[in-house]
C-alpha cells in the first residue's frame, strides 16, 4: 500500500484544489480580513503607535498580519475536512484500497497551497500600501520557510479540529483564538508598553519570536536567537499536532 501514498495523495490533492478553484471566495475571504486590518492599523491607529524604531509602521506590522492571514485560512481546512466526513465520501475513500494517510495529507497540502496564495495576495497589497524591504533572496527564502512551517503547524491543528468537531461551527471556531494571538504579541505594538503580566505572556508566546524573526529578515537585520526560539516553537507545535491528528484519525478508523 505504501507505494501508493504519493500517487493517491496527488490525486486527492488535485480533488481538493479543484474545490478551491471552484470556490475562490475561500482564498479571497482569507485575504480580506488581514487586508482590512492592515488598512485600519496603517491609516487609522498606526499614527498613534510608537514602535520605537525608524521603520515605517507597515514594515513593522506586516509579519503579524501574515500570521493572522494563515490563522484565518486554516479554518477552511478544518471546514473542508469536516464536510468530507459528514458526507459519505470519507467512508468511500476508507473502504477503498488507497493509502489511508493520503486522505489527510491531501487536505494538508491543499491548505499549504491556498494559504500561500492568500499570503502572496496580502504581501502584494502591502507593497501597494508602501511596504518596502531590501531583503535578499536568502532572507525571502527564510521568510517563506518560516511561513510554510507556520502554515503546516497550524494546518495539523486544523486537522485535529476538523476530525473531532461535532458541528460545522465547531470545526472553524478553534481558529479564533489563533487569530487573536498576534494581538497579544510584539506584532502591532512593542511588548514593553504592556502591563507586566501581559508583557510576560506576550514575550513568551510563540507569535512574538516568529514575528521578530520575520521582521529581522525583512529589515536585513541579524535574526539572533529569536529564529531558534521560533523554529523550536514551530517544530514542537507541528510535531505535537501531527501526533495528535494521527491518534484521532486512528481512533476514528477502528
Amino acid at each position: 500500500m505504501t507505494s501508493h501514498v504519493l500517487g493517491d495523495t496527488r490525486v486527492l490533492t488535485g480533488r481538493s484544489l479543484t474545490h478551491i478553484l471552484r470556490s475562490p471566495d475561500t482564498i479571497i475571504t482569507t485575504a480580506v480580513t488581514p487586508i482590512a486590518l492592515m488598512l485600519l492599523f496603517v491609516y487609522v491607529l498606526g499614527g498613534a503607535i510608537n514602535t520605537g524604531s525608524d521603520e515605517s509602521y507597515i514594515n513593522y506590522m506586516l509579519p503579524g498580519i501574515l500570521l493572522i492571514t494563515v490563522a484565518s485560512g486554516i479554518a477552511y481546512t478544518a471546514y473542508r475536512l469536516f464536510l468530507d466526513m459528514q458526507g459519505g465520501i470519507f467512508e468511500r475513500f476508507q473502504s477503498m484500497p488507497i493509502a489511508r494517510s493520503s486522505v489527510l495529507w491531501a487536505h494538508v497540502l491543499t491548505s499549504l497551497v491556498s494559504n500561500l496564495v492568500s499570503v502572496a495576495i496580502v504581501i502584494g497589497v502591502a507593497f501597494i500600501m508602501g511596504f518596502r524591504t531590501g531583503a535578499s533572496l536568502g532572507a525571502w527564502l527564510g521568510v517563506a520557510g518560516i511561513l510554510v512551517l507556520f502554515t503546516l503547524a497550524l494546518t495539523w491543528l486544523a486537522v485535529v479540529a476538523g476530525l473531532s468537531a461535532k458541528t460545522v461551527d465547531g470545526a472553524s471556531a478553534f481558529s479564533y483564538p489563533l487569530i487573536f494571538l498576534p494581538f497579544i504579541s510584539s506584532a502591532f505594538v512593542p511588548t514593553d508598553t504592556m502591563p507586566a503580566p501581559v508583557a510576560w505572556f506576550a514575550e513568551n508566546q510563540p507569535v512574538t519570536s516568529i514575528v521578530d524573526t520575520l521582521r529581522a529578515l525583512f529589515a536585513q537585520e541579524p535574526v539572533g536567537n529569536e529564529i531558534w526560539i521560533a523554529l523550536g516553537w514551530l517544530v514542537a507545535i507541528l510535531v505535537g499536532a501531527y501526533i495528535w491528528s494521527v491518534a484521532i484519525y486512528r481512533r476514528k478508523l477502528s
Partner: peptide, 27 residues
Amino acid sequence: SLTGQFAAVDEVLTGRENLVLVAKLRH
C-alpha cells in the same frame, strides 16, 4: 465496494470527475 446510506459523491466535482477520481484511486 461500498455504497453507503447517503450517496457518497463529491458535490463540487462533476459526475464524470467523480468517476475519474475513483478510477484513479483504484489505480
